[in-house]
Computed example of a mutant assay.
Amino acid sequence: MERGVLYICPTPIGNLEDITLRTIRILGEVDLIAAEDTRHTIKLLNHYDIKKPLTSYHEHNIKEKGTELIEKLSSGQNIALVSDAGMPGISDPGQELIRQAIDEGIEVIALPGATASITALVISGLSTEKFIFEGFLSSKKGERKKELDKIKEYTKTTIIYEAPHRLMNLLEDMEDILGDRQISISRELTKKYEETFRGVASEALEKFKDSGVKGEFVIIVDGNHETKEVEEIDIGQLLRQFIEEGLTKKEAVKKVSEEYNVPKNLVYKESIRISEKL
């Protein structure tokens, strides 16, 4: 029996016009649409007069619903996966279904479309040459500060997501750790009241304290452009840390070199010295 196809269908992040003709066609052709929130998705489908069966697939039913969807795909049904907004699989449970489908040998086709992270990045004014996607940081203050300590050392631009009720706490920690590092904060992207703030964390705190915090936020953080002296960095300790976190020696060498502006040959030599001691 021929198996079905799992289509990854990005949906608008605000403006309903931001959907491709191909996505509209696929949504109208599949046997079933798996949505993060069917109540949200039905509004989009009604707008484009798409009448297809809907089923919910979210973080609270990943296991049982994932198994059910894989069975349907295996029996020949084509399924479209959508999130509430943007590209499924980015900071949402869609990644689990995609992984399951791949493990089962089911064809997965991703359609291009709207995504908040890249939209915010390109209008930030910060470097787009190389960037790191961090998504949501920890809701726990201690863990969040540790994450920001690492981000502070990144030489690449960093993309962060944050919910409105946690924005001020995040900005307070960013002011404390990042200081006058340039950031960009976008909210309500593609909507009527779209807004992008550019400045530093202390200025953002003042702004959002006065204007309130509504909408989902994408925060872009400039990379660290300060050139550190190699002597200030314990290369060996960093290598051991990254290897303990699960990276291979080759991956750890690359990570230390890129994130701490250390010549790769020096890091490689230190990795050899560490290996000899093990």
Rank of each mutant, 00 (worst) to 15 (best):
C9L: 13
P10W: 04
T11V: 15
T11G: 13
I13A: 04
I13C: 08
G14M: 02
G14A: 06
G14R: 01
N15C: 13
L16F: 07
D18S: 09
D18F: 01
I19C: 14
I19D: 07
T20C: 06
T20W: 01
T20G: 05
L21W: 03
L21M: 15
T23R: 02
I24V: 15
R25N: 15
R25S: 15
I26M: 07
I26R: 01
L27M: 12
L27Y: 01
G28A: 07
E29V: 15
V30N: 07
D31M: 03
L32E: 05
I33F: 04
I33W: 00
I33R: 04
I33C: 09
I33Y: 02
A34V: 13
A34C: 13
A35T: 12
A35N: 08
A35L: 13
E36R: 13
D37H: 09
D37C: 14
T38D: 06
R39C: 11
R39A: 14
R39M: 11
H40L: 14
H40F: 04
T41K: 07
T41M: 11
I42D: 06
I42P: 03
I42C: 13
K43C: 11
K43L: 14
L45E: 04
N46W: 00
N46P: 01
H47G: 10
H47T: 12
H47N: 13
Y48I: 13
Y48C: 14
Y48W: 06
Y48S: 12
Y48G: 12
D49A: 14
D49W: 00
I50S: 09
K51N: 12
K52L: 10
L54Y: 03
L54F: 06
L54D: 08
S56V: 08
S56K: 07
Y57D: 03
Y57P: 02
H58M: 12
E59N: 13
E59I: 11
E59M: 10
N61W: 02
N61Q: 09
N61Y: 03
I62G: 02
I62E: 15
K63H: 11
K63V: 14
E64D: 13
E64H: 04
K65L: 08
K65E: 11
G66W: 02
T67K: 14
T67Y: 00
T67C: 05
E68F: 04
E68Y: 04
E68W: 00
E68A: 10
L69G: 07
I70A: 08
E71L: 10
E71N: 12
E71V: 09
E71T: 12
K72C: 05
K72Y: 00
L73W: 00
S74E: 12
S74H: 03
S74Y: 00
S74T: 15
G76I: 06
Q77D: 09
Q77E: 13
Q77F: 05
N78I: 08
N78Y: 00
A80W: 00
A80V: 07
A80G: 08
A80Q: 01
L81A: 07
V82D: 00
V82L: 02
V82N: 01
S83Q: 06
S83T: 15
S83A: 14
D84R: 05
D84G: 08
A85W: 00
A85K: 04
A85G: 02
A85R: 02
G86Q: 09
G86W: 05
G86D: 06
M87G: 11
